[in-house]
Design a protein around this nucleic acid. Structure first.
Lengths: 258, 258
DNA sequence: CGCTATGTTGAGGGAGATCAAAGACTGTGG
DNA sequence: CCACAGTCTTTGATCTCCCTCAACATAGCG
């Protein structure tokens, strides 16, 4: 299983078969993708999945540090993460930046661009990644043909809204330990859903990025990690995390949105 | 203009013609609504607006303090605010609550329910209000008939995502003065769009509610209002706000998402 | 006329920010 | 192979913004 293998490799570099940003040629088929049940086709029947197949124009590599799209750019595609991890961020006029999303394989990006036809955030690869581009105009055409497919698109957008609600809750009313624990538990859950170990993983973000995501400073992130380690909840070695007592972490901090 | 009259009345009570929560009878027609250009029908042609007319099952009063829907309840309707103001909130298992939205006339509520078929937040009327209920199942049927209509639904959902991005930016990287100023400027802009004065208005939320929305305590909200007043930016008398120098407020604090 | 809800203001404390320094690791170039 | 710069992380010391606790004022309401 390539996914598990990738997880086992501690480096963040994976072989880049094509030049930066280039398409890899043939269109990727959703119907044969191992992320089928997590991604856009989830809940769709075979015929609908084939419709998606016809419009997914291609797979593309995006290398670590590169952007997939930037705030203000014209919106044309919705993107599905096929491998690797992305962050998305918004920025203020004075340069302050805030990370507002962390996207893993099977998750969609770029939905915020539909509102005005321009992207409202910037998507940056946190490691070497692979993404599928879905032309929004064609998605609309196809979903006009299938009520089910259209419901799925709505559902995925709604899911994004719900996700942001949770983040607002986190930013608005949790302390540093609660924020970091919630973040780690959420990560753990999503990794498990992808067949990775929920207890041991590599963070793809720096302390500063985690801080930006959680509304705290990098030093506070670092100190909170140290505190968790001293409490015997996890072992932390830079970006390598091993959660030793996930139940305790849950009990102490997991306050799921009611 | 009834809207302007309502704005001029300092009390939050408006006459309730029907019993609490009751439908007022005949279906409301979008085609003749004065909020037509702000609300769901914006950007739709006459035929499409008539389709919406056919499914908007009715107008309903919701009195101050009452909830329109609650977290966890089955999702069936999307709601459009026809008059008055709503807050929406999410809560943690331990009872902490966070206000994650403030909805004015012409704005939609309940989109977060599409994801799982249950509402992810609670909507509470901040004053006596009137809302239109749009059955989601029928909305889907109708929007299957019109690509344009479906695009509009997507756009409205995307707008909600963008709105939440801004809130996350606010919660994640602004100080108390910036938060309150951003909040007031946003309110001012939305009131202007509805034909109200952008400089003088009544807040519909208590200090505690504003605090919950902006991720700060009620005392801090109160102190920040006092600070703005001492800086000559506005006059504050409980919930009545008169912004005397909106440009200064903009210059000092408005840091629009890049 | 109390009673409750709401808002303002003060005093003090604390969680996290800021400033600073040092160690670990990576990649680069000699 | 090693010296070096640059990045990331950790930890300490100090500071500050906002929270907490408290008292008081005001308005609406039974």
């Amino acid at each position: 299983m390539p996914a598990a293998a990738e997880n086992a490799i501690p480096t963040i570099r994976i072989a880049a078969a094509a030049p930066v940003g280039a398409r890899t040629g043939a269109a990727t088929r959703c119907s044969s993708c191992h992320l089928r049940d997590l991604c856009l086709p989830s809940g769709m029947n075979d015929a609908e999945t084939e419709w998606i197949d016809r419009m997914t124009i291609g797979r593309r590599h995006v290398n670590a540090g590169q952007t997939l799209y930037r705030e203000g750019e014209r919106f044309q595609f919705i993107y599905a993460v096929r491998g690797g991890t992305f962050k998305s961020s918004v920025s203020l006029a004075d340069g302050r930046e805030h990370i507002c999303g962390l996207h893993m394989s099977g998750e969609l990006m770029g939905l915020d661009g539909i509102a005005n036809g321009t992207h409202a955030s910037t998507a940056t690869a946190l490691e070497d990644t692979e993404i599928c581009s879905i032309p929004y105009a064609r998605l609309n055409e196809e979903s006009g043909r299938s009520a089910n497919m259209q419901r799925m698109v709505n559902r995925l957008m709604s899911r994004e809204i719900v996700r942001e609600h949770s983040l607002m809750m986190l930013l608005g009313s949790m302390n540093a330990e609660e924020r970091l624990a919630t973040f780690l538990l959420n990560l753990s859950k999503r990794l498990r859903a992808r067949g990775y170990s929920p207890n041991e993983f590599h963070l793809r973000m720096s302390r500063a990025e985690i801080g930006s995501y959680l509304g705290m400073k990098l030093e506070t992130v670092s100190r909170t990690f140290s505190a968790f380690q001293q409490q015997g909840l996890m072992e932390v070695d830079k970006r390598h995390i091993r959660i030793t007592d996930i139940d305790a972490l849950q009990r102490a901090f997991d306050a799921p949105v009611h």
